[in-house]
């Protein structure tokens, strides 16, 4: 199946043309065509191992090469577990501040940053954890700290790999709404089709390293998305 091509009028933020990715000798992604425009809200779906994370890495790479500002939530969170929640969230703005300011905040958190991050914690439902070491938090709480770090970057674009995988359904819903509100555009990898349909403008489905669905979400049904999780390979 060939994904429908959109004819862009403005230059896209990301343009992958027949890209592929390898893990050692094994090909993980093959002939990927993907474009992302400003303000687009894209959810990537697919079984685990289909190549979602690899696709996000490709996007990440291209954005970095183009020097685009974006926030990033990796699957492994990338938190520094013996630093506090404050510090891990503060890290979202490290590159926007002077190194002395950063050093000062590392040793003794400053009121301004404290106030900003306290506000964030409220919306992430992490009240009272400002100075708890991340190592002492539960998996779900750690995930929200990683989200907090992305929010604190105050970037218009978010790339996130399974950002709500460790949260229960109602909380996951609230957090995704928060992300929709705070970011102008995003590319999220999710595994929940319902959440995907509710939050995305456009859905990209990956199966065995290829993009097999790339459509506006209001033209898709949950039924259609289920084909992504079939064991039967649709073949080339």
């Amino acid at each position: 199946m060939k994904p429908p091509t959109v004819t862009p009028t403005v230059t896209p933020l990301i343009a992958l043309n027949a890209s592929s990715a390898h893990y050692g000798k094994q090909q993980v992604l093959a002939s990927i065509d993907f474009r992302l425009h400003q303000g687009e809200r894209v959810v990537v779906l697919g079984k685990s191992g289909a190549g979602k994370s690899t696709l996000l890495s490709l996007l990440n790479q291209q954005l970095s090469e183009n020097d685009e500002s974006f926030a990033w939530i990796p699957q492994q969170h990338g938190l520094v577990s013996n630093l506090s929640v404050f510090h891990n969230i503060y890290m979202g703005q490290l590159d926007q501040r002077s190194r002395w300011q950063n050093l000062l905040n590392l040793l003794w958190p400053q009121p301004r940053a404290k106030k900003q991050i306290l506000g964030l914690l409220k919306s992430l439902e992490l009240n009272g954890q400002l100075f708890t070491a991340v190592a002492e938090l539960s998996g779900g709480q750690q995930q929200r700290v990683a989200i907090g770090r992305a929010l604190y970057r105050q970037s218009p674009l978010l790339i996130a790999d399974e950002p709500v995988a460790n949260l229960d359904q109602p909380l996951a819903k609230r957090i995704l709404e928060l992300l929709s509100k705070r970011f102008n555009g995003f590319v999220l990898a999710l595994h929940d089709t319902e959440l995907a349909l509710a939050n995305a403008d456009r859905i990209v489905g990956i199966k065995a390293g290829r993009i097999v669905i790339d459509q506006a979400s209001n033209k898709l049904t949950a039924k259609q998305l289920e084909t992504l999780y079939d064991d039967v390979d649709t073949g080339d």
Partner: peptide, 22 residues
Amino acid sequence: KLRRDAGRGFNRYSYEILPRVY
């Protein structure tokens, strides 16, 4: 293993590496 957007230079030293090896 650092994440892709980890800081560089002194930021990397003070926030990413030092706390982990401290």
